[in-house]
Structure formats: C-alpha cells, structure tokens
Design a protein around this nucleic acid. Sequence first.
RNA 1: GCAGGGGUAGCCAAGCUAGGAAAAGGCGCAGGACUUAGGAUCCUGUUCUUAGUGAUUCUAGGGUUCGAAUCCCUACCCCUGCACCA
Length: 966
Amino acid sequence: MARDYAEMEAKWQKAWMDRKLNESERKDGKPKFMIIFAYPGITGYLHVGHLRGYTIADALGRYKRMTGYNVLFPVGTHGTGNGCISLANKIRKKDEKTVDYLIRNGCSPEKVEKLTEPMDVVNFFNDVYQNDYWKRFGFLADWRRFTCTLYPDYAKFIEWQFTKLKENNLLIQKPYYAPFCPECGPVAVDPSETDISKGGLAETQEYTLLKFWCEEKKFFLVAATLRPETVYGQVCFWARPDIDYSIVEKDGETWVVAPQAAEKLQLQFDNVRTVGSVPGKELIGLMCRAPMLHKLIPVFPADFVDPNIGTGLVTSVPSDAPSDWDALEAVKRNPDLVSVYNIPQDVIDSVEPISIISIKGYGDFPAKDIIDKMKISEIKDPEKFKEAMEEAKKVVYKDGYHMGRMKDICGEFAGMRVEEAKDKMKQAMIDAGEADLFRDLTLEVVCRCGRTVHIKRIDDQWFINYADQKLTEGTQANAKNMTIYPPEYYDNVQGVLDWYRERACVRLGKWLGTKFPFDSKWTIEAISDSTLYPVYYTISLYANSGQITPEQMKPCFFDYVILEKGDAASVSKETGISADLLDKIKADVHYWYPLDINLGGKEHMTVHFPVFLLNHRAILPDEMQPKGILVNWYVTGKNKDKISKSKGGAQPIPGAVAKYGADAMRLYYAHVASMYVDVEWDEDVVFTYRQKLEKIMATVEALVSEESDVPAGPIDDWLMSRFSTHLNEIRAAMDKYDLRSMATVVYYDMANDMRWYERRGGKNKATLTKALRIWINAMMPVTPHVAEELWEIAGFNGLVSEAQLPEADAVSPAAEYGEVFLQNVISDVNEIKKMAKGDITKAVIYTSPAWKIGIVKDAIAMAKEGKLTPPDLIKKCMADENLKRMGKEVSNFASKTAVDLKRGSIEDREAIIGMDERAFLDSAKDFIAAEVGLEVQVFSADDEGRYDPAGKAKIAAPGRTAIYLE
RNA sequence: GCAGGGGUAGCCAAGCUAGGAAAAGGCGCAGGACUUAGGAUCCUGUUCUUAGUGAUUCUAGGGUUCGAAUCCCUACCCCUGCACCA
C-alpha cells in the first residue's frame, strides 16, 4: 500500500503547530527539561549525517514531554567566521562549482543570484536549516526563540559575556603566532577548511633557525631544522644553485635565506628587511661555521631543497636524515663540484657522515639503514621516490625521538635521550646567539580569498585564560556532578579540562561576528562566542518578538535577568524595559536554566564542550551550571570518512525525506546503532526501516479493524504483563538516554508480542485498546508522525504528542512464563522432529511427575531461608519413604535442582512451579498441533494410562516436558 | 608525540562499569506457508554433533575463578581528537 508520507507528515506538523506544542512557556511548579543540540555553523547545506544528533535531541525532548516534563528545545545557528563571506564572494564572482553546488541542493537559480552579501547567505541558510531540515523532520523546537550568532541582540549577549570574563580577570593579552592571511587576517587551518581553500591538513611546526657564519662574505647562512639535536652530525650545507636568495638585515645581522623565507621572517620578527639578493650558485663552495660544532663546513649544491619550506637552506646531517644521506652520495659523484664550483677535492673527500645517535635496531647511520630497509634506491619513479623519502624521514625521526640516545661525540649532551637533548640543545644554541625560533606551516595554505597564508606573530592577542586553576578545578567539580554520556567521556573530560590552556578568543581581519567590546579592531572568534549561548535561548524570545531591542540590552539588563544583580527599578530606568517585563524575563531564565542536556557530535569533546563548561563556571552561579552532556558519533560515508558538507556528494536531506519519510529516517538514526559509534550511511538500511514502519502501521490497522471480541484469557494477562515489562524497560533505557534500547523495545519487542498475541488467538477489545494506547504512545518520540496517524486510526482522543505515557502495571512472572514454556515445548518438538528419521505424525508430550515438583518446592523453600545445599536437599528428600524408594534418581534430580536454583532467580522458579503444566498444555493442544503440524497428545508422567512406548516420560521435569514422536 | 576508543558469528550491531544461556536485534542466506509480481508478508532454520539436557566459540596467547566475550597481563591489528575548526 502506497502511503503519501509527505502529506501525512505535513498534516501532523500543522496540527502540532496549531496546538502550539512546540512553543514552550514557563509553567511555575511543573518540572522542566531544557535540551539543545550544539548549533551548526553556517557553512552550506547539511547532509543526512548531521540530522543524527538533531533527531536524537528531538526524540529525547519528546520523551520528556510524555513523561511529565515541560520541555524547552530551542535551536539556532552559528554564522561567525568567514564561511558566509567567502560563499557570498564566490557567488558574486559566479564561481561555477559553488553555483553548481547550490543548484544541486535545490536552490533556485534566481535565488542564487541574490546571495551576494554575507548576511543574505546567513539568512538563506537559516531558512533552509529550519524549514527544509528541522521542521521537515518534525522537530518540536520553539521556533520563536531561534537565534543566530550574527543577530544584533545576540551580539549584545556576547558583549556582556566578555565583560564578565574581563571582570573575572579571565582575559589576558600576550604574543601569539597565528596562520595569517595578508588580506583576511588570521585564519583557522583545519581539515574542514572552513576558512581556507587549500592546505587544511597543514600543521604549524616550530623550526630552529641555525646561523652559519660565513667569514668570506660576512653574512649568516640560515638553515631551518626540526632536529636541533642532530647538529653534532653536521658535515656540509645545502643550497639550491638555481635560485636567488635574499639578503636580509635583522637586528644588525645579515642573513641569507630564500625570498619566501624572507617574507615569512618579516611576519615573525621585528626589524627585518630585505637589502639585496645573491644567486644560489655563488653560495656553493663557501665555507661556513656550523653552530654548536664551531667547525667549518662546505656549502654543496642540492636540488631536493625546497625554497618554500623553512629558509630554503638546509644543514646536512647524513647520518640521521635520509635525504641528506642520499644527496651526499650523489654530490660526491658530481664532477661539477670540482670543475664548476672549484671545490678542492680534499674538502669533498673530508665530508664523511658522523654517527651521533644510537637507536635500538639501527646501526651507526640510521639514515642509511632506513634507505636500505625500504629499498628506496631501487625506486625509479621520481614521485614515488620522493614519497618514500618522506616516509623514511618520518620513521627514522620518530624512532630516533623515542628510542634514540646521544652518543659520546655530542659533548655535554652525550648519553641523554633524544627527547631530552632536543630541547636542551636548542636552548643552548639560542642562548649562545647561534639559533632562533621560527614557525612555518607544513603545507602550502591558501586562504579562501586566494592569498597564501603564513604564520604571523601577533603581539597583543587576547586570550581567555582557561588555564586558571580555580576555574579549572571548579569546572571539573561541576563536571563530576553532571550526567555525561558516553561514560568514557565523563572520565575523559576531566583530563581535557586539565590540559586546556589559554585560548585566543578574538581575531583581526574581516570576519562575521561580534566586535570585541574593549577594542573594536578585534572580532570575537567562533569558539568563544558559542559557549554560554544556551542561556540566551531563554531571552531571545523577547528580542525576537520585539518586546526588547538590542539597544536596551545593556550589561545591566543581563546582570539583572541572568545574575539577579541590581534592582528592577534602576535597570528599568537605564534600559527602558518595564520592571514587569524584566522580572518576567528573569523568571524565565531561572525557570529554564540550568540546561539539562547539551547534545553534540564527538568533534565537540575537546573543543566546544570544555569551553561550554568553563564559561558557565566562569560566569554563572552554582545553581545555573549545566546538568548533562550527550555526545553522538557520526554517520560516515562509504569509506569511513566523515561525509563532508563542503565536498558535496552526500544525499541532500529534502530528497532523503521525500524518498523514505521523516519517520523512517528518525527510526534509522535512533536504532541503527548505539549513539556512540560511527555508522556507515547506507540507503538500503534506511529502506528496511521504512518497511518496518509500514509493517507496524499495517499491523495496527488490522488490529483496529478487527470485528470480533474474544473474552480475555491467560494470553491477555500475558500481553498486559509483557507490556508492563516493556514500559519498565523503556523508562530504564531512557534514564540513560539510551534511545536505541528504547527503540528496540518499541519497534521490535512490542511488535513481536502483538504478533504472538494474535497468533495465540488473542482478540479481546479491551486488551487491545490498552495495548495499542501504550504501544502507539511509546512510538511518539522516535516516529511522531506515524504515531499520530495510528493514534487517530485507533480512535484515541487528541494528539499523541500531548499524551502521557502510562505507568506500568505490576509485572506477573507467572503470566509471562506460560508462553515461554509453550514456546520451549514447540521448539523442542521441532528440534526432535528435524532429527527423527521416518514419517512423524504424532507428538506425545509428558509433564513432570508430582514428586519432582515437590522437590523443587522444597528447594525453593530452603533457598528462601538461605540454607539450600545439595546434601541438605537430598537428606530432606530421603526422609520421605516414597522418594527414598526411587533412590539415585531422586538424589540426582535433587542435586541438579539445588545447583540450578543457585543460578536462576527464585521468582522464575516459582512461576514454573506455580503453573499447572498439564492443564495449560491441554488448553494449548490445538495451537501446538497447528504450529508443529502433528497430532498432539498430552500426559502427565504420573498418568497410569499414558501412552509411553519409549519410556520417555520419566525424563520430564518441571519446566521441561519429555517428548516422544512417532 | 599527548589523550582516548576499539577488535563479537557471512555482514551490521547488543552484551562487556554489577563474570553464570551459542551469545539480543537487524540484514543477508536457506527451506516452507501464503499467494502472487511487491525492493511484499508470515513461519522455521542458519558453529559442529545429536531424538532434544553434548562439544567448541566472541583477534591471538597466558592468568584469576567452580565458572569469562565479560576481570588481569602480553602480543598483533584498527580507529578518533588534539585549540583562532563548528
């Protein structure tokens, strides 16, 4: 049967809106629950992966609604940064890829034309996120409170937040080295490439600049190295003969570096200027004095040197650097050295590798060893050769760092571990004026504007001092009192808070965001303006409705409504907001806060969540500290990588909803795996969830349209007990926010029970009505549209989204046990039937003899007194003359019973004993016969006239029938 | 490097913070029912063995225990985050 999901969804979404279910109002005295998901940054269209966490948040909110809470689930977006600026720029320039991307995701060409201003982009995506994603998924979010970090009222809130940080002495200034675009200012370099167009994997490395004095020319050749500990192994120096180098003046010294490096130096040091240039080939053959060694070494030509990396000059340590080893071998065979550069042969000959570091598993020259081991000399393809060299470098560096020890030749550093020597030698050379520090990126990084990004020193950078000890400890203490899932993160967050240091909180350049209130040349950066914001959702309602204006939202306003500082009259006077309204807002803030759950993707574990906690601790009082954090893992692409929003290719959300229906997607997210593992996106899996839902809908429809009304019997008791059990399971699971377990119960266990009830002939109207009310209600959090539809079909009043989940009745193990027993009998018969040879037409079932029941009863009684042991039980049995006559059979059974009872629960055993198996099976005889396809006879093992040709009956025990087939 | 997570049957995935069921559930596969064309539904089965209560399994190897997928140790392998990125 084809269902129009879109129509069904729209119908119920409208019904919810009409009833204003999503609009959360303070209800004094009613318990509240406030949940948010970490709002998304506006970087383009979202994909099916993002909806995982959002959907879970909505489902949790809905669950809380149906269990007595007044729920607030607000949403917003984060537009800070330059994503929207660059997107608008690209659109303005009609960048083909960008336009394509927009159109492919459903933006009309006319609309694309209009997205040329950053705020247009912001507003466009704010609309897309709310209307095309969240509303389509049926979220009961309070849209009236929607906020965006670029709204003027939000900015007022951020200004206030920073005022508070400053008052608390948590803002500090110090120099900082940042990736910097000459056009846009500092940029974020990270794999998601939000700010940049190339080089997201680049890292900032700290090089040691080594100064080599060249007496002949009166200048320093300056090399950059990552391994200052290897200076004792320097034997020569590499320069590119085919490029020109720059001569720069720095603090009265003359340095030679590649022109690219000269540019970078100017960004990181004062008083650097380029004063001339020198061709690389003129450097070849010069002798220069190596730092630390204080020995003259020759400059040799090398073409592996990259002028874009470091200084474009390299000191050579062939013993430990594979490329140096390789280049040295090559240069020694190069006749140009003598003929072109006039280097004396004895100088060339004197250059020999020096062994300086001993590493377990390597010989004197680790560089040579790794080259041999990886058989790099045999690689012909230049690209692959280069890659192999890189790999070799990494391996030998890493092994050297961890396992290496400095050899005796290394002066005062001899015997030290490399890890330790590295810093000490670096510092020694800096102190001696032979070295300096320099930072560079490992890859070329290009800003979204097209300019190349370099590291720049920024002197007056503002930081939030997250290293503050009191703040850290206070935050850690709060985190210990919070509900944090998964449990690993509960433990882990303590350590994360420990290593949190000062964090840059503002940046220069053209960025969207709030201006730094103490110096407007700075803009508050993206992480720092998204830490305390959940509390703002309690206020945004009033700004959005125009009851208060940004101009009125002065610090004293926030002080009053959030921190309860000041008095209404004077704040009212200063802001122009009526005292009544001030008090109303204040009451709202303190009704909804603290935040109960902040849910976000796992990427937030070391970024957003810690600063979220820290800022709350820094600014808000104890009673407003957050209560919970939930972390969700990703939906990944086929190759286990995160589905990238920028790279496209992922299923656009509106298409997926149209194809599978919102509820199938919701069920998929809730049930496909634990929240705490990554899931590979697979449309076929979503489809099976859709089928599952359709099956359930068909089942309910069939049950509702059932005409007959069979009187209630044991199977009705069974179903009611099962549903009570399930209600308990649901509540237990949701106490741990375990949506997946809850969904298993609702969509699988309960569905199976309904099917079994029907199979057993259950058709009692009252039972069905009660069961359906529970079942459909339990579906509401995960599949609200389907639940509403079924709720209506079943004839229940109102909206299920407003209904309260019934409390569980008492669970009856006895009522549940009968069916378990029955299923065991059937599966045993089937099992034996499979094994038996020949035609089987009849099954004879024997129930336990009375004496065994008696023994179990005795055993239970003894167990309850806590003195059940096999010998005692046997003794008691043997006191009975009738039992004694059966001897060994009795003692065997008794000891087995005693052991069994120690494991299983006594309640279950009592349920078994409490049942008249014979009567029960008699009543179910026809059902068994139909299930196994055999004629069925039932006897008690005690029946005198039983049919028992194989003598099977004696095997029968309570809970376990004996079976004979023929 | 620093910090952390994990290896479960053909696949996905529970269970493993409280040790006691060949190991939930789903998918896939096989057989059957129904009855038909739908990416159906419903039963049954899906380690080996066997007229059922047996044997061997949860990366590998040790250990603790009456008993371990679950606790401890070792090895191998995989993965994640790491700060002006939300």
